[in-house]
């Protein structure tokens, strides 16, 4: 296993406490476990506020997790001091959703991509330049574009720059946080194909965070569905899409609009609002929106269980 995450938790301090009355912490991630194999992609799906981005950042220690363990290539990095962590950062990188805020507007594209090389001791200018040029070409940009500023690129090209920066140090794992969500449909395909090609060439692993089920199905080998800080279903992609077991996964799949007017039919859609992690329902977090909820769901937390080989579900009714 390249990455093993066990019972990861992240609580943020709550707000609004008065004089000595400590407010309840916000449970952004509440006991999440998964693993990613070398050269594979785990898709992490969920709606806003489910904690999927916090998971991605915690793994890279951009956010310090509250509890749990993260093992990368067998080493526990959960509490690794930042000096040692620095070296490991070569091996795990991140690509963000927003192609605008992810690049410093005042730096040239070539310098942005070369930055990781500089930080990790590639001192020689010519060598750095050559490597940057190779990276540009690898992600489908022209070397001549190295001297341009970010605003001179389109959204898709900027995402390619972000990917080139992430690739610079030859990582094993890339956390991709909604990498195509801000892009136009026609450009999405370019970036998805690029990421999949790179995976094959470099034996890369991805933690692919997205709210878009169709994209996740397309790129992932395994899928984990999150709801309010917990994983409610976790299985191989084919299995989970063919036979989703958790009522939330089923509802999510029913809600995705399909580009297929021939099969248009009015489906039963989930009611209620996406709840916030500040105010979590008791018992199964999903029960207020669940069409199948029973008394037990209102009081008792369902634990993730393996219902068949390699298929985990956290639901009393499955």
């Amino acid at each position: 296993m390249l990455l093993e995450v066990n019972d990861l938790r992240k609580y943020f301090p709550g707000r609004g406490g008065f004089f000595g009355k400590t407010p309840d912490p916000v449970h952004a991630i509440d006991g999440v476990s998964f693993a990613i194999q070398e050269g594979k992609t785990l898709g992490l799906v969920g709606e806003s506020g489910c904690g999927k981005s916090t998971v991605g950042r915690s793994i890279l220690r951009l956010i310090e997790p509250t509890a749990g363990t993260i093992r990368f290539e067998g080493t526990d990095i959960t509490r690794m001091p930042s000096k040692e962590m620095r070296n490991l950062r070569k091996r795990m990188q991140i690509v963000f959703q927003d192609p605008y805020s992810s690049l410093n507007p005042r730096r040239r594209a070539g310098d942005i991509v070369a930055e990781p090389l500089l930080v990790h001791g590639v001192e020689n200018r010519t060598e750095r330049r050559a490597k940057t040029q190779a990276l540009f070409e690898r992600v489908g940009l022209r070397a001549a574009q190295m001297d341009l500023y970010p605003h001179q690129f389109s959204g898709g090209q900027r995402q390619r720059i972000s990917i080139a920066r992430a690739l610079a140090l030859g990582p094993k794992l890339i956390v991709a946080d909604e990498p195509v969500s801000a892009l136009d449909v026609s450009v999405q395909a370019q970036v998805i194909n690029l990421m999949m090609d790179l995976q094959e060439q470099e034996k890369l692993s991805y933690l692919f965070i997205s709210h878009n089920l169709a994209v996740v199905e397309h790129v992932s080998h395994q899928v984990a569905v999150m709801y309010l800080g917990r994983i409610v279903e976790y299985a191989a992609t084919k299995r989970i899409f063919e036979r989703p077991l958790h009522p939330y996964t089923q509802a999510l799949m029913a809600a995705v609009p399909m580009p297929d007017p021939a099969n248009r039919r009015r489906k039963q859609h989930l009611g209620g609002d996406v709840p916030s992690p500040v105010n979590r329902p008791k018992g199964c977090h999903f029960h207020p929106r669940c069409p199948l909820a029973q008394e037990r769901c209102r009081v008792e937390d369902p634990m993730p269980r393996e219902v068949e080989a390699g298929h985990q579900v956290a639901c009393h009714l499955v």
Binding site: L62, R89, M92, Q93, P116
Partner: peptide, 13 residues
């Protein structure tokens, strides 16, 4: 809060 600052942390700067 911007991503490029986060990205700089992620490369170990």
């Amino acid at each position: 809060e911007l991503n490029y600052v986060e990205a700089a942390h992620a490369i170990g700067m």
